[in-house]
Computed example of a mutant assay.
Amino acid sequence: MFALMQSTGTEALHLVVDRDSGLRAVIAIHNRQAGPALGGCRFLSYPDDASAMADAIRLARGMSYKAALAGLPFGGGKAVVIRPAHVANRAPLFEALGRFIQSLDGRYITAIESGTCTADMDCIARHTEHVTSTTAVGDPAPHTALGVFSGIRSTAMARLGSDNLEGLRIAIQGLGHVGYALAEHLRAAGAELLVSDLNPINVQRAMEQLQARPVACEALAATPCDIFVPCGLGAVLNSQSVAQLRCAAVAGAANNQLSSLDVADQLEARGILYAPDYVINSGGLIHAALSYQGQSAEAIHAHLGRIGRRLTEVYAHAQAEKRSPAKVAELLAERILKP
């Protein structure tokens, strides 16, 4: 694990155990050069403890890159609460996590992520002020979706020559809070939606409300479309799945979509434009960060509007330098983070 921390530039890794609640959690702090580490809290099952630690480390680095490219005065961090097999009451878990976050004295600020909700953040807030995405602040998911929608328009312009989405076939993988909100924006813009989700209720809802066409989860990547939009968990783009893709671009909300940076070169070789995840999906972080600072809804909306422009800049650099957008975004972020 130390090797992974060194290779990713991770500053600290905290392992948290609370006997009374049964909490087992990991907090990774990647970089605090620009400010305190800010990043969401996951509540998921993992095959083993090492997988949870590796997930937290990789996600924390992504948050540092995301904050840097979004121009936010925060570093990157991530919390992972390992979900027990049986959870009668999750509140004590998050209250215990809140007590530990308080002990970090402001070095890490948490927020909603996969598997958590505003009620969980409220439990954390009983013991620390270093939390956002509470009921009072609101769920950042709609802001993530709005930013991704803006990024998809920029991606369509860069790859297809127009940001008009009417009539485009867009395949959405994952219809959670972000994925469904994004689907609503895309449908309102006239896109034809192909959707998949592990929960059939989400798919049925999209069929009824958005006239979406369902596709089996295992078949969506190989289904012909204009833009493939991953909105579930990470590492969905690997050598095998990229070989199956039949799209012009990939632009989604999921974190850590690439199983490795080499996959970006495979996408480039196939002529598939890739929107770096920590650029396009930064809307939730922007909302969490600026809400934590007490900024207005107008200021947050204005900052969200810069996502599409930043993505256009990344594409322009990539074309000029003959590199993949993923590698360009990483280089830009590392330049900002460099001491």
Rank of each mutant, 00 (worst) to 15 (best):
S239F: 02
G115C: 11
G75S: 11
L97T: 08
I170S: 01
Q295W: 04
A235T: 13
S133E: 06
F228L: 12
Q295F: 10
G9N: 05
L273T: 01
G271N: 08
H287N: 14
E313R: 12
A52M: 08
E95V: 13
V279M: 15
A156N: 09
G179W: 06
I201E: 12
R213H: 13
S103Y: 09
G271H: 10
D197Q: 06
G271W: 13
A34E: 08
N199R: 15
E184G: 06
L165P: 12
I227C: 06
R61D: 04
T118H: 04
F2A: 14
N202L: 12
L237G: 04
R32L: 07
A79C: 15
Q266N: 02
E218C: 12
M121P: 02
V148A: 03
T223I: 11
S45I: 06
P325G: 02
L13D: 00
I112A: 03
L160P: 06
H30A: 12
L15H: 15
A235Q: 13
H177C: 08
V215L: 15
A297V: 04
A264F: 04
V131R: 01
S260L: 01
C225H: 13
A302S: 14
A189G: 05
H185M: 09
R159W: 07
A206D: 02
P36M: 09
S259M: 04
A191V: 04
A88E: 15
V215E: 03
A171Q: 03
A188V: 10
A216E: 15
N199H: 10
H287T: 04
Y65C: 14
T10M: 07
S162D: 14
T132K: 04
C247S: 06
A96F: 12
P142S: 06
M207A: 10
V178Q: 01
E321W: 11
A254N: 05
F94Q: 13
Q244W: 07
F149H: 11
S296M: 14
S260P: 01
D226C: 00
A34C: 00
A171C: 14
A88Q: 14
L290A: 03
A253R: 06
A12Q: 13
L175P: 03
R153C: 08
G71N: 08
S154I: 07
S241P: 02
A60T: 01
S196V: 05
H185F: 15
G167F: 07
G40M: 10
R42Q: 07
L331Y: 01
L165I: 02
A158S: 14
M1E: 03
G39C: 04
M121S: 03
G294F: 09
V314D: 00
Q257Y: 08
Q266F: 00
R335E: 15
Y274F: 15
G98H: 07
G106Y: 09
A189H: 09
A12L: 14
A34W: 07
D262K: 01
H287Q: 13
N256K: 05
D55C: 05
R205Q: 12
R90P: 09
S7C: 06
V236W: 09
D197C: 08
L290N: 00
L165A: 09
R83H: 13
T144K: 03
G176T: 10
T135L: 12
D277M: 10
G98C: 12
